[in-house]
């Protein structure tokens, strides 16, 4: 399979670090919640949460997991419906400043569904978007991120995969020329 590494493990940690600091420029985390989109945005949200916790030891950084499956716009347009993942939102976002977190931004449709799903948990004061990889020029909806790990140019057939290695492993991002089987 034709692929190459977009973000190597050494760079990965540095990008997480930068994103955490960029968030701190705009947020004191007294009224801000991180919300990771299922299934893969939650890994990034949790990484950011633990990094922010190190930088702000006296605050608690709320971090929720939001599943957008029931809010997707392609129900009945695929051969089979998508099986949902767990939503775990232990707080209401009413009047809070929410940062939606996902690993790869492509067409923008998942984020559209994510905003819709978020509103079922209250009316946030503001919503911002943070992504690790922004596949520029592939948008099908007018959605742009405020915080970006790395912006890349790609074609439709290509596929970006963030390799989350879990505790102790080193994470990296790969670009495939075709969607892996």
């Amino acid at each position: 399979m034709d692929s190459h590494v977009l973000i190597a493990p050494s760079l990965f940690d540095r990008i997480i670090d930068r994103l955490a600091h960029q968030l701190l420029e705009h947020h004191a985390f007294t009224e801000t919640d991180l919300v990771g989109l299922q299934p893969r945005g939650i890994f990034l949200a949790r990484r950011l949460q633990s990094r922010l916790q190190e930088l702000l030891p006296s605050s608690t950084i709320p971090c929720g997991a939001l599943d957008v499956t029931f809010h997707r716009d392609d129900f009945g347009r695929r051969n089979h419906p998508i099986a949902p993942n767990a939503t775990d939102m232990p707080f209401l976002v009413e009047d809070r400043r929410v940062i939606l977190v996902d690993d790869v931004l492509h067409t923008g449709r998942t984020i559209r569904a994510g905003m819709d799903a978020l509103m079922a948990h209250g009316r946030p004061r503001s919503v911002e978007l943070l992504v690790l990889i922004d596949r520029r020029f592939r948008r099908e909806l007018p959605i742009e991120p405020r915080y970006v790990g790395k912006a890349i140019d790609s074609i439709d057939e290509q596929y970006v995969k963030v390799r989350w290695q879990g505790q102790g492993g080193s994470d990296y991002v790969e670009l495939f020329n075709q969607k892996p089987a």
Partner: peptide
């Protein structure tokens, strides 16, 4: 049963409704 557990979370939200089947 797995899907039902996600819907159980949905019906315990402040807004207990999702738009999945809106054109059916």
């Amino acid at each position: 049963l797995k899907t039902a557990s996600e819907f159980k979370e949905v019906i315990n939200r402040p807004i207990r409704k999702v738009p999945s089947l809106r054109d059916l």
